[in-house]
Design a protein around this nucleic acid. Structure first.
Length: 445
RNA sequence: GGAGGGAUGGCCGAGUGGACGAAGGCGGCGGUCUUGAAAACCGCUGUAGGGCAACCUACCGGGGGUUCGAAUCCCUCUCCCUCCGCCA
């Protein structure tokens, strides 16, 4: 089943003084439908608590604002009166009202804090087109492109190939920083740099993105805005002294680039591409993927990001997927497109595709891109809106993101797919201009 | 890190306790005039919450306080600028 159609639309209501998540209006109107949708994610959210807090909030507001109105009127009268007994009497009479107002304000503050906390925990709801499924095992492979190369020798995994070529060093990485760190060296480091430069150039010149160099360390607020907090706190590196957080993806600074702005409709879509290092503690990956460089605490990524009109966001999702696929095609490496089911959507996406490159040595499909439509989820959290025309009410934009692509994994795919019987690696045609014309990585390099 | 200065609406900039959601200007929108445009003149021109109609409430960097009443007074935080130190 898909999420009820009543959940797909809705006015854009913001919690006063706070930041919303999904539209609270949807919860007010049909809390049961929201709960059903969240159940398909395999997630939990305090919907009943939100409904109660929201009711309570409006009750408090009405009483409080009524009292404030009376108070304002009385203060005005006092200001116009000559000094005297009557005036003093009015002033004295205000103290009771003020005490009540203070009490209500305090209650309202507590109520809104609780409401906002609860709202922050609500995940984005799935788009109607997303298949319902419990977890990643039910994800749907939509298509596979490119021919798997036939090897007349046993292709090596990169963790053998790299060290033998002298371009990858695990021991020294561990010496410097511990497990899940490694060193790229010589042509290996250069190959990664070439990939980054080439991908950035491709997205800028062929796909119309504007290149951004953002901070990789951001304020806590940015983490909430992009949807990293509250859920993923344990996976984020943080400088406690200055309360700055290391980004796990460029999606975080890019989302926040237009925080608290009202954009002009004619400026949309805004398309950014950014290269950043990414830092993840990988607290939840346990002993998974410890071999090789597939999952490190630090990696590089080129990320595409779009701010767009709501009615155009789903077409844009397919487009970004194509932009990521274009990288795979140009590298001439087989890839496949996987659609996430509801249970594997994550916290922020309404619909998501993964793009995977085949790695013949490791013998697995490597996730090198994740392409998501977050609809207005991140825009609500960051207050990014647009106006359809002058004087029109601001509406939330939709945001999308997609890796284009994630680095060490793309590097793995290049090494493993282009390896030769003699242990050397052919440099893909598109990268040669970025490698100073180098055609092959061999030991003597 | 040390010393000093500052933060007002899209922008500039007045406002030091009482009718200020905030003068004035610029920009923008609409209108008059004009064959058209410019100029001139007139009007409008923030956001959010609640009612969901009239209307009410909140917001002058953030938070707290004093007061019947605060953009205006006090405390505190953040950010920006200038000078010194340090530095890629």
């Amino acid at each position: 089943m898909v999420c009820p159609s009543s959940l797909r639309r809705g006015a854009h209501v913001v919690v006063r003084g706070g930041v919303p998540m999904i539209d609270i209006q949807r919860i007010r109107e049909d809390p049961e439908a929201v709960k059903e949708a969240i159940a398909t994610l395999g997630a939990e959210a305090p919907i009943d608590e939100i409904v109660n807090l929201d009711l309570k909030r409006r009750k408090l507001l009405q009483e409080l604002e009524g009292l404030r109105q009376g108070k304002n009127e009385t203060s005005e009268r006092i200001g116009r009166m000559e000094p005297g007994d009557e005036r003093q009497g009015l002033i004295d009479s205000m103290s009771g009202v003020n005490a009540r107002i203070k009490a209500l304000e305090s209650a309202l503050r507590g109520n809104e804090d609780a409401l906002q906390r609860a709202m922050y925990e609500v995940p984005n709801l799935p788009d109607a087109s997303v298949p319902v499924g419990a977890d990643e095992s039910e994800n749907v492979v939509l298509r596979e492109e490119g021919r798997l190369r036939k090897f007349d020798f046993e292709p090596l995994p990169h963790w053998d190939l790299g060290p033998e070529l002298g371009i990858l060093d695990f021991e020294r990485g561990v010496k410097l920083s511990g497990s899940r760190f490694y060193i790229l060296k010589g042509a290996g480091a250069k190959l990664q740099r070439a990939l980054i430069q080439w991908m950035l150039d491709l997205h800028v010149s062929d796909h119309g993105y504007t290149e951004i160099y953002p901070p990789a360390i951001v304020k806590e607020q940015c983490m909430w805005g992009a949807g990293q907090l509250p859920k993923f706190a344990d996976n984020i590196y943080r400088d406690v002294e200055d309360d700055l957080w290391l980004v796990g993806t460029a999606e975080i600074p890019l989302t926040n680039l237009h925080r608290d702005e009202i954009l002009e409709a004619e400026d949309l879509p805004i398309s950014y591409v950014a290269y950043t290092p990414c830092f993840r503690r990988e607290k939840f990956s346990g002993g998974r993927d410890v071999r090789g460089i597939k999952r490190g605490h630090q990696f590089d990524k080129v990320e595409m990001y779009k701010f767009i009109l709501p009615e155009e966001s789903y077409a844009a999702l397919e487009q970004i997927l194509e932009h990521a696929a274009a990288v795979c095609r140009a590298l001439e490496i087989p890839y496949r497109v996987v659609q996430m089911v509801t249970g594997d959507l994550g916290f922020t996406a309404a619909k998501k595709y993964d793009l995977e490159l085949w790695a013949p040595g490791s013998e697995e499909w490597l996730e090198v891109s994740s392409v998501s439509n977050c609809e207005a989820f991140q825009a609500r959290r960051t207050h990014i809106r647009f106006r359809r025309e002058k004087g029109a009410k601001p509406e939330y934009v939709h945001t999308l993101n997609g890796s284009g692509l994630a680095l060490p994994r793309t590097l793995i795919a290049v090494l493993e797919n282009y390896q030769q019987a003699d242990g050397s690696v052919i440099v893909p045609d598109v990268l040669r201009p970025y490698m100073g014309g180098m055609e092959r990585i061999a030991l003597e390099n």
